[in-house]
Deep mutational scan, measured.
Amino acid sequence: CHSECLGNCSQPDDPTKCVACRNFYLDGRCVETCPPPYYHFQDWRCVNFSFCQDLHHKCKNSRRQGCHQYVIHNNKCIPECPSGYTMNSSNLLCTPCLGPCPKVCHLLEGEKTIDSVTSAQELRGCTVINGSLIINIRGGNNLAAELEANLGLIEEISGYLKIRRSYALVSLSFFRKLRLIRGETLEIGNYSFYALDNQNLRQLWDWSKHNLTITQGKLFFHYNPKLCLSEIHKMEEVSGTKGRQERNDIALKTNGDQASCENELLKFSYIRTSFDKILLRWEPYWPPDFRDLLGFMLFYKEAPYQNVTEFDGQDACGSNSWTVVDIDPPLRSNDPKSQNHPGWLMRGLKPWTQYAIFVKTLVTFSDERRTYGAKSDIIYVQTDATNPSVPLDPISVSNSSSQIILKWKPPSDPNGNITHYLVFWERQAEDSELFELDYCLKGLKLPSRTWSPPFESEDSQKHNQSEYEDSAGECCSCPKTDSQILKELEESSFRKTFEDYLHNVVFVPRKT
């Protein structure tokens, strides 16, 4: 048989008469490798580009789960590009990614509803959504962080984005990388972005840091009482949809009607710091009717980097990364020049730590249904340095008659930039024990000054392991946590139920 035959053949030295091919099969003959313009397919066939392209389009058009959109890589027609490569849609070739590779997620039936953290986790790592997304989240724990972890990498949506009755959302900033909504599939009414009845939605994105392009379709905003109209108009300008909307697409009466839409800028007039305090004062603000001013709200939190936005980490279910302080308005003076500047002394802060701070007014709604208010920009203030805590785990070892090696770990709280350490030492008198000992005694162990690591005695271990207080009263049991108490109650309830079950099964009433 021919060298490319495997198993047997019907005619000697003829690659077209093989029972099976050793390498690849091409047009009725066995070959060692697939010549151009053919590609290896499933490690035994040679196919042309049209064959591989037909497989790709067949799966793409069917949208069946589990099928493969075949691509070409290293002269092979394979189910998908290997790690580190992405497909070129024009020629199906796998090309190296520039940075992290995109991950295209194809949605069944063309859309997916995100109504819980669990459903959001199914899209973790996706960068391109081939379909439409509907966000409908009523509640949950730590929602802002969970949504950002699972949806934060999405850069492109081919269909539309719909935010509907998501009472738990305060902001859409968890879509931190969303840059493009194509609108290839539109919501009824030709809408590519749809926001309806979101009672706590206050911000779409921080438009000073976020760009969003909507290729096709219109915007729809109705019944978002805490979303200011200025935020919607800003989205029109940034996304390129200005002029597409009709009169009733953006409701003037049901958007922002319960919001404090600040239209003035508060400026800080005085800032002073110490290692654990920050004193702030800002310019006074009074609405047209000074009785509408209820006070100020001061927001602050630790910020290692200057990239904080107002609604980071917030949701309507209680999660809030900001510390909020309510401040009463100052006494009002008739003389504008003698107006008191409101302020606040922030206490209990960490030394040498940068804080993000902003302040906003708290006002009631005027009778004319106009909203007044003022808010400052987010500023960054760093507390002063102070003395560091003591170095940890000092170790001293003498390696000769004239040297001592000293080692330690950095302090747990540096409280500033540590530039150097101060080492103090003092000579001590020799131990009298060394002169009084009889060095001729056998088995004498000389006193040693070398360091030995501390260890816990058996008594201390027994005390720590004991669940009861000892007789001397030195140790006591740790208080039980809520989960331990709940577990004990469940076990007790189970024992009672099981005992009742045994009584009912074992003891049967005697027939009379």
Results as ranks from 00 to 15, higher is better:
Val104Met: 06
Ser119Asn: 11
Ala120Ser: 09
Gln121Tyr: 02
Val128Trp: 14
Leu133His: 00
Leu133Pro: 00
Asn141Val: 13
Asn142Thr: 12
Glu146Tyr: 15
Glu148Pro: 09
Ile154Gly: 00
Glu155Gly: 10
Tyr160Phe: 11
Leu161Pro: 01
Lys162Met: 05
Arg165Val: 10
Tyr167Met: 15
Ser171Met: 04
Leu172Arg: 00
Phe175His: 01
Leu178Lys: 00
Arg182Gln: 03
Leu186Lys: 09
Asn190Lys: 15
Tyr191Asp: 02
Tyr191Met: 05
Phe193Lys: 00
Leu196Asp: 03
Asp197Trp: 02
Gln199Ser: 05
Leu201Ser: 00
Asp206Phe: 06
Trp207Gln: 03
Leu212Thr: 10
Leu212Ser: 03
Phe220Val: 05
His222Thr: 03
Gly243Pro: 01
Gly243Glu: 11
Arg244Gln: 10
Asp249Pro: 12
Asp249Gly: 10
Asn263Ile: 07
Glu264Leu: 10
Lys267Tyr: 15
Arg281Asn: 12
Pro284Lys: 08
Pro284Ala: 14
Tyr285Trp: 08
Trp286Glu: 05
Pro287Thr: 11
Pro288Thr: 09
Gly295Tyr: 02
Phe296Arg: 00
Leu298Ser: 01
Phe299Ile: 08
Tyr300Lys: 01
Tyr300Trp: 05
Tyr300Cys: 15
Pro304Ile: 09
Tyr305Gln: 04
Val308Lys: 07
Phe311Trp: 15
Asp312Val: 06
Asp312Met: 10
Gly313Leu: 08
Gly318Val: 06
Ile327Tyr: 04
Ile327Asp: 00
Arg332Trp: 06
Asn334Ser: 08
Asp335Cys: 05
Ser338Phe: 10
Ser338Asn: 07
Ser338Leu: 10
Asn340Trp: 13
Asn340Glu: 15
Gly343Cys: 09
Leu345Phe: 08
Arg347Ser: 07
Gly348Ile: 01
Lys350Met: 11
Gln354Pro: 09
Tyr355Arg: 00
Ala356Glu: 01
Ile357Cys: 15
Lys360Asn: 14
Lys360Thr: 03
Ser366Arg: 12
Glu368Arg: 15
Glu368Val: 15
Asp377Phe: 03
Val390Met: 10
Pro391His: 02
Leu392Tyr: 14
Val397Ser: 13
Ser400Gln: 02
Ser400Gly: 08
Ser400His: 13
Pro410His: 10
